[in-house]
Protein backbone atom coordinates (compact mmCIF):
# COMPACT_ATOMS: atom_id res chain seq x y z
CA UNK A 1 0.00 0.00 0.00
CA UNK A 2 2.84 2.37 0.84
CA UNK A 3 4.24 1.79 -2.63
CA UNK A 4 0.89 2.71 -4.25
CA UNK A 5 0.94 6.01 -2.35
CA UNK A 6 4.56 6.57 -3.41
CA UNK A 7 3.65 6.10 -7.08
CA UNK A 8 0.73 8.53 -6.76
CA UNK A 9 3.01 11.07 -5.06
CA UNK A 10 5.65 10.66 -7.75
CA UNK A 11 3.08 11.23 -10.48
CA UNK A 12 1.58 14.27 -8.75
CA UNK A 13 5.03 15.82 -8.55
CA UNK A 14 5.53 15.17 -12.24
CA UNK A 15 2.15 16.57 -13.35
CA UNK A 16 3.05 20.19 -13.97
CA UNK A 17 6.36 19.27 -15.60
CA UNK A 18 5.01 16.65 -17.97
CA UNK A 19 3.53 18.87 -20.69
CA UNK A 20 2.37 16.09 -23.01
CA UNK A 21 0.28 14.48 -20.29
CA UNK A 22 -0.79 17.76 -18.70
CA UNK A 23 -2.34 19.06 -21.91
CA UNK A 24 -4.53 15.96 -22.08
CA UNK A 25 -5.90 16.70 -18.63
CA UNK A 26 -6.49 20.41 -19.19
CA UNK A 27 -7.65 20.72 -22.81
CA UNK A 28 -11.27 19.57 -22.66
CA UNK A 29 -12.17 21.16 -19.31
CA UNK A 30 -10.82 24.49 -20.59
CA UNK A 31 -12.55 24.11 -23.98
CA UNK A 32 -15.81 23.36 -22.17
CA UNK A 33 -15.59 26.48 -20.04
CA UNK A 34 -14.82 28.60 -23.09
CA UNK A 35 -17.56 27.11 -25.28
CA UNK A 36 -20.24 27.06 -22.61
CA UNK A 37 -19.61 30.62 -21.52
CA UNK A 38 -18.53 32.41 -24.64
CA UNK A 39 -20.49 30.75 -27.42
CA UNK A 40 -24.20 31.11 -27.68
CA UNK A 41 -25.82 29.47 -30.69
CA UNK A 42 -29.62 29.73 -30.89
CA UNK A 43 -31.52 26.40 -30.79
CA UNK A 44 -28.42 24.59 -29.53
CA UNK A 45 -29.46 21.87 -27.04
CA UNK A 46 -28.73 22.80 -23.49
CA UNK A 47 -25.15 22.14 -22.36
CA UNK A 48 -24.38 20.65 -25.74
CA UNK A 49 -20.64 21.30 -25.56
CA UNK A 50 -20.28 20.31 -21.92
CA UNK A 51 -21.81 16.89 -22.63
CA UNK A 52 -19.99 16.31 -25.90
CA UNK A 53 -16.61 17.38 -24.54
CA UNK A 54 -17.13 15.27 -21.43
CA UNK A 55 -17.29 12.06 -23.43
CA UNK A 56 -14.43 13.14 -25.67
CA UNK A 57 -12.42 13.87 -22.52
CA UNK A 58 -13.29 10.44 -21.22
CA UNK A 59 -12.25 8.70 -24.43
CA UNK A 60 -9.01 10.58 -24.72
CA UNK A 61 -7.34 11.84 -21.56
CA UNK A 62 -7.16 8.78 -19.27
CA UNK A 63 -6.24 6.48 -22.14
CA UNK A 64 -3.45 8.65 -23.50
CA UNK A 65 -2.13 9.60 -20.07
CA UNK A 66 -1.91 6.05 -18.70
CA UNK A 67 -0.33 4.70 -21.89
CA UNK A 68 2.14 7.60 -22.03
CA UNK A 69 3.18 7.24 -18.40
CA UNK A 70 3.77 3.49 -18.55
CA UNK A 71 5.51 3.49 -21.91
CA UNK A 72 7.81 6.36 -20.92
CA UNK A 73 8.89 4.47 -17.80
CA UNK A 74 9.63 1.45 -19.96
CA UNK A 75 11.56 3.43 -22.53
CA UNK A 76 13.67 5.25 -19.95
CA UNK A 77 14.21 2.12 -17.87
CA UNK A 78 12.85 3.62 -14.68
CA UNK A 79 10.12 0.99 -14.36
CA UNK A 80 12.83 -1.66 -13.95
CA UNK A 81 14.33 0.32 -11.12
CA UNK A 82 10.97 0.40 -9.36
CA UNK A 83 10.45 -3.32 -9.84
CA UNK A 84 13.95 -3.95 -8.53
CA UNK A 85 13.09 -1.89 -5.47
CA UNK A 86 10.40 -4.48 -4.85
CA UNK A 87 7.47 -2.39 -6.09
CA UNK A 88 4.97 -4.96 -7.36
CA UNK A 89 3.62 -4.49 -10.87
CA UNK A 90 0.05 -4.27 -9.57
CA UNK A 91 1.10 -1.63 -7.02
CA UNK A 92 2.57 0.42 -9.83
CA UNK A 93 -0.48 0.06 -12.09
CA UNK A 94 -2.94 0.84 -9.28
CA UNK A 95 -0.85 3.89 -8.35
CA UNK A 96 -0.85 5.22 -11.90
CA UNK A 97 -4.57 4.40 -12.22
CA UNK A 98 -5.52 6.21 -9.03
CA UNK A 99 -3.47 9.21 -10.06
CA UNK A 100 -4.97 9.51 -13.55
CA UNK A 101 -8.48 8.87 -12.26
CA UNK A 102 -8.11 11.56 -9.61
CA UNK A 103 -6.79 14.19 -12.01
CA UNK A 104 -9.52 13.35 -14.53
CA UNK A 105 -12.12 13.72 -11.80
CA UNK A 106 -10.72 17.16 -11.05
CA UNK A 107 -11.12 17.94 -14.76
CA UNK A 108 -14.67 16.59 -14.67
CA UNK A 109 -15.24 18.76 -11.60
CA UNK A 110 -14.24 21.80 -13.65
CA UNK A 111 -16.63 20.80 -16.44
CA UNK A 112 -19.34 20.14 -13.84
CA UNK A 113 -19.40 23.83 -12.91
CA UNK A 114 -21.41 24.34 -16.11
CA UNK A 115 -24.16 21.96 -14.95
CA UNK A 116 -27.06 22.80 -12.63
CA UNK A 117 -26.23 21.72 -9.07
CA UNK A 118 -28.87 18.96 -9.04
CA UNK A 119 -27.23 17.20 -12.00
CA UNK A 120 -23.69 17.26 -10.67
CA UNK A 121 -23.79 14.05 -8.56
CA UNK A 122 -25.16 12.07 -11.50
CA UNK A 123 -22.66 13.61 -13.87
CA UNK A 124 -19.67 12.86 -11.65
CA UNK A 125 -20.83 9.30 -10.96
CA UNK A 126 -21.11 8.53 -14.66
CA UNK A 127 -17.76 10.14 -15.43
CA UNK A 128 -16.09 8.28 -12.57
CA UNK A 129 -17.22 4.94 -14.00
CA UNK A 130 -16.25 5.84 -17.57
CA UNK A 131 -12.77 6.96 -16.56
CA UNK A 132 -12.13 3.56 -15.03
CA UNK A 133 -12.85 1.83 -18.34
CA UNK A 134 -10.59 4.23 -20.22
CA UNK A 135 -7.80 3.74 -17.70
CA UNK A 136 -7.98 -0.04 -18.09
CA UNK A 137 -7.76 0.32 -21.88
CA UNK A 138 -4.83 2.76 -21.56
CA UNK A 139 -3.05 0.31 -19.27
CA UNK A 140 -3.41 -2.44 -21.90
CA UNK A 141 -1.68 -0.21 -24.42
CA UNK A 142 1.01 0.69 -21.89
CA UNK A 143 1.63 -2.98 -21.16
CA UNK A 144 1.94 -3.93 -24.82
CA UNK A 145 3.92 -0.94 -26.09
CA UNK A 146 7.67 -1.25 -25.54
CA UNK A 147 8.27 2.49 -25.93
CA UNK A 148 6.54 5.85 -26.32
CA UNK A 149 6.43 5.83 -30.08
CA UNK A 150 4.64 2.52 -30.32
CA UNK A 151 2.36 3.60 -27.50
CA UNK A 152 1.34 6.78 -29.32
CA UNK A 153 0.56 4.94 -32.52
CA UNK A 154 -1.42 2.28 -30.66
CA UNK A 155 -3.37 4.82 -28.62
CA UNK A 156 -4.36 6.98 -31.54
CA UNK A 157 -6.89 4.73 -33.32
CA UNK A 158 -8.43 3.51 -30.06
CA UNK A 159 -8.80 7.02 -28.77
CA UNK A 160 -10.27 8.28 -32.04
CA UNK A 161 -12.93 5.57 -31.99
CA UNK A 162 -13.92 6.12 -28.37
CA UNK A 163 -13.88 9.89 -28.35
CA UNK A 164 -15.08 10.76 -31.84
CA UNK A 165 -17.72 8.10 -32.34
CA UNK A 166 -20.21 9.95 -30.13
CA UNK A 167 -19.72 13.13 -32.14
CA UNK A 168 -19.97 11.48 -35.56
CA UNK A 169 -23.01 9.58 -34.36
CA UNK A 170 -24.92 12.86 -34.25
CA UNK A 171 -24.56 13.34 -37.97
CA UNK A 172 -25.08 9.86 -39.31
CA UNK A 173 -27.54 7.16 -38.27
CA UNK A 174 -25.40 4.32 -39.50
CA UNK A 175 -22.49 5.48 -37.43
CA UNK A 176 -24.84 5.92 -34.51
CA UNK A 177 -25.80 2.24 -34.71
CA UNK A 178 -22.17 1.20 -34.54
CA UNK A 179 -21.21 3.83 -32.00
CA UNK A 180 -23.84 2.41 -29.63
CA UNK A 181 -21.63 -0.50 -28.78
CA UNK A 182 -19.01 1.79 -27.26
CA UNK A 183 -19.26 2.95 -23.69
CA UNK A 184 -18.54 6.55 -24.61
CA UNK A 185 -21.66 6.76 -26.81
CA UNK A 186 -23.76 5.13 -24.09
CA UNK A 187 -22.41 7.58 -21.56
CA UNK A 188 -23.34 10.39 -23.88
CA UNK A 189 -26.89 9.02 -23.93
CA UNK A 190 -26.82 8.81 -20.13
CA UNK A 191 -25.67 12.41 -19.92
CA UNK A 192 -28.54 13.50 -22.16
CA UNK A 193 -31.06 12.05 -19.72
CA UNK A 194 -29.12 13.06 -16.64
CA UNK A 195 -31.08 10.97 -14.11
CA UNK A 196 -30.30 7.75 -12.29
CA UNK A 197 -33.91 6.67 -12.86
CA UNK A 198 -33.65 7.25 -16.60
CA UNK A 199 -30.78 4.79 -17.12
CA UNK A 200 -32.00 2.31 -19.70
CA UNK A 201 -31.10 -1.36 -19.08
CA UNK A 202 -29.54 -1.39 -22.53
CA UNK A 203 -27.13 1.44 -21.70
CA UNK A 204 -26.23 -0.12 -18.41
CA UNK A 205 -25.58 -3.47 -20.05
CA UNK A 206 -23.38 -2.03 -22.81
CA UNK A 207 -21.28 0.00 -20.38
CA UNK A 208 -20.95 -3.07 -18.16
CA UNK A 209 -19.84 -5.24 -21.09
CA UNK A 210 -17.33 -2.60 -22.17
CA UNK A 211 -15.98 -2.45 -18.63
CA UNK A 212 -15.79 -6.22 -18.41
CA UNK A 213 -13.98 -6.49 -21.75
CA UNK A 214 -11.53 -3.75 -20.80
CA UNK A 215 -10.77 -5.42 -17.50
CA UNK A 216 -10.44 -8.91 -19.00
CA UNK A 217 -8.17 -7.51 -21.71
CA UNK A 218 -6.14 -5.77 -19.05
CA UNK A 219 -5.62 -8.92 -17.00
CA UNK A 220 -4.87 -10.94 -20.11
CA UNK A 221 -2.29 -8.38 -21.23
CA UNK A 222 -0.82 -8.23 -17.76
CA UNK A 223 -0.59 -11.98 -17.40
CA UNK A 224 0.94 -12.36 -20.81
CA UNK A 225 3.46 -9.53 -20.71
CA UNK A 226 3.75 -8.31 -17.13
CA UNK A 227 5.60 -5.05 -17.00
CA UNK A 228 8.79 -5.96 -18.81
Amino acid sequence: MRNVVTIVKKQLKDTLKNKTVLIQFVMFPVLTLIFEHAINIPDMPELFFAKLFSVMYMGMAPLTAVAAIISEEKEKNTLRVLMMANVKPWEYLIGVGIYVWTICMVGAGVIATSFPAKDIPFYLAVMAAGFIISIAVGACVGIFAPNQMVSTSMVLPVMLVFSFAPMLAMFNDKIEKIARIFYTQQIRILLNNMTFDGIKPESFAIVAVNALLAIILFFAAFRKKGLE
Partner: peptide, 27 residues
Protein backbone atom coordinates in the same frame (compact mmCIF):
# COMPACT_ATOMS: atom_id res chain seq x y z
CA UNK B 1 21.62 -2.30 -3.79
CA UNK B 2 21.52 -2.97 -7.52
CA UNK B 3 22.68 -0.56 -10.20
CA UNK B 4 22.34 -2.05 -13.67
CA UNK B 5 24.06 -0.40 -16.60
CA UNK B 6 20.80 0.64 -18.27
CA UNK B 7 18.88 1.91 -15.26
CA UNK B 8 17.33 5.33 -15.79
CA UNK B 9 16.35 8.28 -13.64
CA UNK B 10 13.25 10.49 -13.73
CA UNK B 11 14.39 13.21 -16.09
CA UNK B 12 11.89 15.90 -15.24
CA UNK B 13 12.34 15.53 -11.50
CA UNK B 14 15.09 17.06 -9.41
CA UNK B 15 17.88 14.96 -7.93
CA UNK B 16 16.33 15.27 -4.48
CA UNK B 17 12.88 14.23 -5.75
CA UNK B 18 14.40 11.28 -7.56
CA UNK B 19 15.87 10.06 -4.29
CA UNK B 20 12.68 10.87 -2.38
CA UNK B 21 10.72 8.30 -4.39
CA UNK B 22 13.13 5.60 -3.26
CA UNK B 23 13.31 6.94 0.29
CA UNK B 24 9.52 6.43 0.36
CA UNK B 25 9.73 2.95 -1.11
CA UNK B 26 12.47 1.78 1.24
CA UNK B 27 11.21 3.67 4.27
Amino acid sequence: GIMMDDHGVYDRMSCADNLKIFADIFG
